[in-house]
Every structure is written in structure tokens, then in C-alpha cells.
Design a protein around this nucleic acid. Structure first.
Lengths: 129, 129
DNA sequence: CTGTATCCCGTTCGATACTG
DNA sequence: CAGTATCGAACGGGATACAG
């Protein structure tokens, strides 16, 4: 088993968050903020999808990264993987109850970005000028 | 030539989000989720701080990464950089009004993590078993 | 004190090829 | 169709040295 496949970033530095759980919070933020996790969750929020459907819905997402992302979500208990014993094989991914509770908080961030992207873009334009 | 140095990430991939704004949403999520951004924002949420103070408050944060993080936040209009013409130089960083509006949404995520980290940890333990 | 520039290593991720 | 294995390029980020 390759090291990379499934290992979620373990945050080994307890100095960062010695007395509290900021390490875990940041680890989850890292997960939430990583390249594909949020897109996968928000896509699954509209209903269960199979692997190939997810791949089709999310533009630019590679085969391999979808697998990695889904495994991490599954490990965290946010997504359920259901295999149907058919030929050809069919696998459906569904948000768990826990995963569903993440939709709203995620939504506040998405809303913020959508509501302020103009200001951010303007600020960048000025900064880069 | 490989001046990757201190420049904030500039928008490398338009492929992913050609016509819509999901790319920007994800880009902001990436920024929010990256190693230090959230910690810097939440630390500045308690009040303005100078460079060295921030460095001291956030354990494990390196000199260089604080600069990189602050530049990105400044570029996005989330943080203001104020230089006082003194010797030795003093520079204070403050959340902008825009930056302040990010505190609440960020809080919903932090609250989610703190409220569900037990379930996540349990799920991981079972998955890894 | 604040910030920039280099070096350098580990990780990430896309492309590709292969299996059940 | 769904998933795994491998490889190479790109990136992140720490240590360090240096400058205003």
C-alpha cells in the first residue's frame, strides 16, 4: 500500500496547539479547504451519485483524486460507500447524517465568498497594479 | 527566474471553472483552509498585532510563511498593513472591515469541528481498524 | 524589527497503465 | 465501471542568510 493514498495529514506538531484542539480544527479546515473536498460534498448534497457521475459533474477532477478524496471523506464518516454486486460494478456515494450537518456551515463560507468576491477581486486588482 | 518566492498564488487554473465562479469559491476555500490563514485571521480578530507579536502568538509559524500569508491576506483586502516610520521599524496588521465579516462564517466551521470532532475521530478509528 | 531571496526536501497531484 | 500502482513534475514550506 502506497504511503500517499489514504493517509490524511496527521498534524504531528503539538506545539502549535498545545493545550487546545486548534490542531484538529485546522486539520479539518485543511480538509475542507483542499482542492476537491468541498466540491464533492456540495455535489453530493444534491443526492447520492456514483463514481462516474461525480467524475462527470466536477470539472477538472481526476480519476485518482476523486478516489483519494472519497476515501478521506469515508474515513471521516462524512460519506458512505455502497457497492452493488452487479456487472458492470456500480458504487454509490452518499452523504452520511454527519456529512449532511456539514452542508450548512460550508454554505456560510460559500455564501461569504459569493457575496464578497467582488470586493476581493477589486482588492487584488488594486494590489497587483 | 523561479521567482515562486513570496508572491501570493495568482490564479493558476482557469480550466476548472471556465464560465462560473466555482473556481473562485474553491480558491477562497483553499486559502481559508491552508496551513496558517485561519489562525492568522482568528488571532487578528482579537485586535491588531505587529509582525513579531503574530509570530509569537502562533506557535510553529515560520518567519517566511507569516510574510507569505499576510501578503495574500493583504492582497485579498482582508488585512491592512500599517508601517510606522520609526527605528526600529514597526508594522501593524489589522483586519479590514471585509476581514471582520469573515470571522462569523469561519466561526461556523470551527464550531462544527469542535462539535463533531468526537464523531470524526470515532469514524477514523473504526475505518483504520 | 520587518522583509526578501535561496536552497532543498517531502508532499501533492496529474497522466498513464493495469486489474477485477 | 470502479479502483489501484507507479512515475515525474510542481508545489509547499522550513532553514538560513542577507538587507533596509
Amino acid at each position: 500500500m502506497p504511503q500517499e493514498s489514504l493517509r490524511p495529514p496527521q498534524w504531528p506538531d503539538d506545539r502549535v496547539c498545545s493545550a487546545d484542539q486548534k490542531g484538529l480544527v485546522r486539520e479539518m479546515l485543511t480538509r475542507i479547504g483542499d482542492k476537491w473536498t468541498t466540491l464533492v460534498i456540495t455535489t453530493l448534497a444534491r443526492g447520492p451519485l456514483r463514481f462516474s457521475a461525480l467524475l462527470g459533474e466536477i470539472n477538472g477532477l481526476s480519476h485518482r483524486m476523486l478516489t483519494v478524496t472519497l476515501r478521506a471523506l469515508e474515513r471521516d464518516g462524512l460519506v458512505t460507500r455502497t457497492v452493488y454486486a452487479e456487472v458492470p460494478p456500480r458504487v454509490e456515494y452518499t452523504l452520511t447524517d454527519l456529512g449532511v450537518t456539514l452542508i450548512a456551515p460550508l454554505g456560510t463560507i460559500v455564501d461569504w465568498v459569493e457575496g464578497h468576491q467582488g470586493q476581493v477581486a477589486a482588492s487584488r486588482a488594486e494590489f497587483d497594479a
